[in-house]
Simulated assay, not measured.
Amino acid sequence: MSHATLEDTYNFAKKFSHYKDFYTKSNGLIFSKLGLGTFNKEPYKEENYVFHYIEGVKEAVRQGINLIDTASNYRYGQSEKEIGEALGELFEAGEAKREELIICSKGGFIQLDYPFPENPYTWIEENLIKTGFATKEDIELDQHCMTPDFVEWSCKRSIENLGVDNLDIYYLHNPEMQLMRLGEKAFYKQIEKIFTRFEKLADEGLFHSYGVAVWNGFTSENSNELISLEKLVECAIKVAGMNHRFKYIQLPFNMGKTAAYTNETQKVDGMPCSVINAAHNLGIGVISSSALLQMNLFKKSFTAETGVILDDSMTLKNDIQLALQFVRSTPGLISSLFGSKVPVHVRENCEISKVKAVKRSKYDLLYRL
């Protein structure tokens, strides 16, 4: 079964002259410091279902990005299918190999189908309840489910949609949605069940590593949705020992949402710390999402001081590139995901690969502005 390998991801990076500063090693793979995300807001808009990610995905790979991230519910499976088409075209043309690319998806949200079902409640009844994947009580707000059977089913659908043999990373998607309903004790018991199933699926070759992707789950000031990373690692160790495959977390991080780096929302061995520091101490890799905050960062221009700190060479030409340079330079992040469908925008974003990352001493000055 084909999956990303150290040798092939390293060889991919070496195709690009700037590879030494734009790639990093984690858990035996070489990651590009930017990854392509495929989340699209306003999912009910009909225009979101026109095939339009294919050329953007191909351009990202051509520009040196080897991390591609999606989820089963993004545009009700259309994002995965478009990535699959793009990958097929790249492989057939000899422009990339499967082993060079790190392909990730997520399960937890109910993905429904495209075209959108006439009655989503009937769809849920027929596809989840009657099949035994879940009970009505397992489903939160008619959109989220966290049973092992449902997540396994979602994972297999994702692999089929993407047209690959397996995934490199598979995430449990936004489990904080279930924390208040279940209560803390039952929540971590459910995590144990999910991780037990994930270890089995990893043994079967469906994915190489697994993780947890959140929105506010690791940084929330609301205890009803705050997840302890330390407890997640304890769950993984309990079900699989020290050789568990729980290797990554994914969470939003950008110039407007910096809590993962600045706020001490986690504890490790009783000591308060940020989630990025907690992950470092626990041996978990961090991949950030929403690098551009769905373009909500750009309602006014960044200051000249910000521009000088992020790029004293004056190479970067716009605030989008500066925002990507910010996340790419954040200490403790493996890679940062941005969303873009248009090839010319992908090329512009990847121009930051030609600029060196900001050193930490300089980077931290941004938090004083």
Rank of each mutant, 00 (worst) to 15 (best):
205 G>C: 13
78 Q>P: 04
214 V>F: 07
112 L>A: 01
6 L>W: 00
358 V>K: 03
204 E>P: 05
322 L>Q: 06
352 I>E: 05
248 Y>K: 05
96 A>P: 12
278 A>F: 12
324 L>S: 06
117 P>F: 00
351 E>K: 07
144 H>N: 09
331 P>Q: 05
73 N>H: 09
131 T>I: 06
216 N>P: 00
266 Q>H: 06
175 P>G: 02
214 V>Y: 05
204 E>Q: 14
91 F>I: 05
3 H>F: 15
144 H>A: 09
278 A>S: 14
197 R>E: 12
184 E>F: 05
252 P>I: 03
193 K>S: 10
361 S>C: 11
130 K>R: 09
134 A>L: 05
134 A>Y: 05
92 E>C: 02
35 G>F: 00
139 I>F: 01
299 K>I: 03
25 K>G: 07
45 K>F: 02
18 H>A: 04
160 E>S: 14
239 V>A: 07
142 D>N: 13
330 T>E: 10
186 A>Q: 14
290 S>W: 08
200 K>M: 14
221 E>F: 02
129 I>N: 01
329 S>I: 08
94 G>M: 06
28 G>Q: 04
282 L>R: 02
165 D>C: 08
284 I>P: 14
238 K>T: 11
56 G>W: 02
345 H>R: 14
137 E>Y: 03
155 C>Q: 01
191 I>D: 04
328 R>H: 07
271 M>P: 01
312 D>K: 15
346 V>I: 12
211 G>I: 14
65 I>H: 07
67 L>A: 00
84 G>M: 03
326 F>D: 02
332 G>M: 08
309 I>R: 06
204 E>K: 12
129 I>G: 00
125 E>H: 01
360 R>W: 13
206 L>N: 13
24 T>V: 12
216 N>F: 12
259 A>S: 15
113 D>V: 09
89 E>A: 14
269 D>V: 10
124 I>K: 00
100 E>V: 06
3 H>N: 15
107 G>F: 01
183 G>D: 09
220 S>Y: 11
68 I>E: 08
8 D>E: 15
212 V>S: 10
53 Y>M: 13
241 G>D: 06
159 I>L: 08
351 E>P: 02
230 E>M: 07
312 D>A: 11
351 E>H: 10
211 G>D: 14
207 F>Y: 09
136 K>G: 06
283 G>I: 03
281 N>R: 13
367 Y>L: 06
126 E>R: 00
105 S>Y: 07
284 I>W: 13
208 H>D: 15
96 A>C: 13
245 R>A: 09
258 T>F: 01
205 G>K: 15
101 L>P: 08
146 M>C: 05
93 A>N: 13
49 Y>N: 10
245 R>K: 15
64 G>N: 10
75 R>S: 04
271 M>N: 04
304 A>R: 14
359 K>M: 10
345 H>D: 10
247 K>Y: 07
107 G>T: 03
329 S>C: 08
172 L>D: 03
180 M>L: 15
21 D>V: 15
163 G>H: 00
236 A>R: 11
294 Q>W: 13
34 L>D: 03
160 E>C: 08
145 C>M: 04
104 C>T: 12
315 T>R: 15
151 V>Q: 14
126 E>I: 00
36 L>Q: 05
133 F>W: 10
362 K>W: 09
202 A>H: 11
134 A>I: 05
35 G>Y: 01
351 E>V: 07
61 V>I: 10
9 T>M: 07
187 F>A: 02
31 F>A: 10
